[in-house]
C-alpha cells in the first residue's frame, strides 16, 4: 500500500504561526488539497487579508498578493479582470470581510466576479487581540465588549452567507464548518466546488467556514470546538445558501 496522506504540493513546509487549536491550519490544508486535486497550482493567485492570515502566503506555494484591510475582493477583481485565465481566491477573516471590507465583498459578489472567497468566521478579531467583530455573538465577551456584546447598542451578528445569498446575481454561496471530521470533509468538497465554478467561469463563489479562536475566546481548543458547536452553529446554520443553475 502506497502513501495515503502527504503534505499537499500547494502547501509549503513552513510551520505556521497560528495558535494551538486554531482552525486556520485545517482550512489552509483544504484549500491546498483542492488546488492539488484540480491541478491548478501554477495558475493560482491567492490574496492574503489583514488579520491572523496576513502571513498565509508563507504557508502556500503559489503566487500571492497581500491586500490592505478588507480590500482583498477589489484586488481579486483587478487580477481576475485582467487575467481571467488565472485562478484567484481571497482568504479573509470576519473583521476584514464583514466589517471594514463589507463594501468590497458585496460589490464583488454582486458583479459576479469570477473569483473565490474563503471566509473564516470565528466571531472575533484575532490578530489585534480579541476585539468585537461584526460576527461576535450577543453576550460573547471581547476586549472591546468586556461585559459581552450588547446587541441593542451594536446590532446583531452579521450572517454573511445569508446576506450574500440575497443578491439577485447568481453565485455559489455556502457555509461550512471545521469543528468535526465530517464537517472538514464537507468543507473540502465545498472549496473544491467553489474553485470548479470559478474555472468554468460560472459565478462568484463564497465559502464561509465557521472556525474557532481558542486564544481570544479564552478557552482550551476542545472547549472552543464545543462552544462553537453549541453557540455559533445554531445561529450560523451550515449548508448551501445559493448554487448556480
Amino acid at each position: 500500500m502506497g502513501k495515503t496522506f502527504t503534505t499537499p504540493k500547494a502547501l509549503s513546509k513552513t510551520h505556521t504561526h497560528y495558535c494551538p487549536g486554531c482552525t486556520h491550519g485545517i482550512v489552509h490544508r483544504l484549500v491546498a488539497e483542492a488546488i492539488d486535486d484540480l491541478g491548478i497550482q501554477g495558475k493560482t493567485v491567492g490574496i492574503a487579508p489583514v488579520g491572523c492570515a496576513v502571513l498565509a502566503y508563507n504557508y502556500f506555494d503559489c503566487d500571492f498578493q497581500e491586500a490592505a484591510h478588507g480590500r482583498a475582493p477589489a484586488m481579486a477583481t483587478g487580477i481576475k479582470r485582467v487575467r481571467p485565465d488565472l485562478m484567484v481566491f481571497t482568504y479573509q477573516g470576519d473583521g476584514d470581510l464583514a466589517s471594514i471590507g463589507m463594501g468590497e465583498i458585496i460589490h464583488a459578489a454582486n458583479r459576479g466576479e469570477k473569483f473565490t472567497t474563503i471566509f473564516i468566521n470565528n466571531a472575533i478579531y484575532g490578530m489585534t487581540g480579541g476585539q468585537m467583530a461584526p460576527t461576535t455573538m450577543g453576550g460573547q465577551r471581547a476586549t472591546t465588549a468586556p461585559a459581552g456584546r450588547d446587541t441593542a447598542a451594536t446590532g446583531m451578528p452579521l450572517r454573511m452567507a445569508n446576506l450574500l445569498a440575497e443578491l439577485v446575481t447568481p453565485g455559489y454561496i455556502t457555509r461550512q464548518a471545521v469543528l468535526k471530521p465530517q464537517q472538514v470533509n464537507k468543507a473540502k468538497k465545498a472549496i473544491k466546488q467553489a474553485f470548479q465554478y470559478q474555472m468554468e467561469g460560472k459565478c462568484f463563489s463564497f465559502v464561509e467556514v465557521v472556525s474557532t479562536c481558542p486564544t481570544n475566546w479564552g478557552m482550551t481548543p476542545l472547549d472552543a470546538l464545543k462552544w462553537a458547536e453549541d453557540t455559533l452553529l445554531p445561529y450560523y446554520e451550515l449548508g448551501d445558501y445559493k448554487v448556480p443553475e
Binding site: 490574496i47 477589489a74 487580477i79 468590497e104
Partner: peptide, 12 residues
C-alpha cells in the same frame, strides 16, 4: 476599491 483593482492588476 478602484485603488486596489489597480493594485491587483499591476501586481499581476
Amino acid at each position: 476599491a478602484v485603488g486596489y483593482m489597480i493594485f491587483g492588476a499591476a501586481g499581476a
